[in-house]
Design a binder for these strands. Structure first.
Lengths: 204, 204
DNA sequence: GTCTATATTGTGATAGAC
DNA sequence: GTCTATCACAATATAGAC
């Protein structure tokens, strides 16, 4: 027996819209395709969300939240810097493996309309202040080199996200279309990324 | 006085098509917008390229070539590994700063149609074999740790590309919309990335 | 080769019955 | 709330004059 949420039409529409919008983008998505995916009629989409624009907005907000890592949540208190990197790489890579099309969807749409980010930032509120402070502290303590914390944070996110969004290039070009090799590569990275970042900045 | 190439209509159309397609994507681009951008009539587009599809294909091929770094060209012979990393980060970052929308365009379209890569790979032919061999050699010589060369290469490209494609998120979230700070950040990275990669894998 | 005018199709949105 | 039928417009593509 399905519960109310997973059974009602609005929920079905949203799930279908996520699937289609995230795969095809705002312009590429067709209302008909979303309706078919949801197993309902096209008109019902308009009954529930009035316009494609509004339906898209709901999906985009969801995707943005899923893409922006909740760094401060992932990083619990009282951990070493290396452990923090390791936790982050693990948790974020997991999220990305489960939702591989979200990053590209968010980046593509935000490039088309850079202004939409401002509303979302207020709602989501995600400045990675904590991690930046932690890195700055470790520099003062002499544990790591005097690097720019912003560079380190961007490096971290770059290393997690890029291999996911470049999958259709990496898979044939680097792994000869062997999905298992690619998958193992991603699994290895969970630990590799943390080691990699830490080795690059630690005092020898 | 313009030379033949830069003056003829076909060239004007292609330049306009690059601008519009790369910014808006295949589905987002409008033939009218391309025509306007080229300073000609909409019908002429069809006269020269018959369909939107064919015009898109021309643009995509160009963009793909521009995006895939010609690693083996950038890496001249007789250089140290650190110098090679440094050269690559410099050259590739320059290309990306000059063409910031190309990576996202290529990745977005290739995700929508992953099969299109096979034709292009044949034409462009870009397996980073040379760099992989060089890294493997350095491992044997004991200069660097026994890492997976593929991980190192992907790291290199990730660190170059991601900060460019995530600009609309990074700029407001990390640099408070200060374009100069972002620009300096990218400039710093040219050397930072090479150091970063090399430090992370060198034997201490 | 280049234009204007028009055909054709695709697609978001609405009206109205049930 | 859900459906069928239809509208209205946007966008690709073509016809035909010059």
């Amino acid at each position: 027996m399905l519960n109310e949420l997973s059974d009602n039409t609005e929920h079905k529409i949203l799930e279908a819209a996520k699937t289609v919008f995230i795969k095809e983008g705002m312009k590429g998505a067709r209302m008909q395709e979303i309706a078919t995916e949801a197993g309902i009629n096209k008109s019902l989409l308009h009954y529930y969300f009035r316009t494609k624009e509004k339906l898209f907005a709901a999906v985009f907000q969801f995707a943005f939240k899923a893409f922006i890592p909740k760094i401060d949540e992932i990083l619990g208190p009282g951990l070493s810097l290396h452990e923090r990197f390791s936790r982050f790489a693990n948790a974020y890579t997991e999220i990305l493996i489960d939702n591989p099309f979200i990053p590209l969807f968010v980046l593509h749409e935000i490039n088309r309309h850079p202004e939409i980010i401002y509303k979302l930032v207020q709602q989501v509120g995600t400045k990675p202040k904590l991690l930046e402070e932690i890195i700055t502290d470790e520099i003062k303590k002499g544990v790591i080199k005097p690097v720019d914390p912003k560079q380190v944070i961007i490096n971290m996110i770059s290393l997690c996200v890029f291999p996911i969004i470049a999958r259709p290039i990496i898979l044939p070009l680097i792994f000869e279309d062997d999905q298992k090799k690619y998958r193992k590569f991603l699994e290895d990275r969970k630990t590799e990324i943390a080691d990699f970042i830490f080795n690059s900045i630690k005092v020898q």
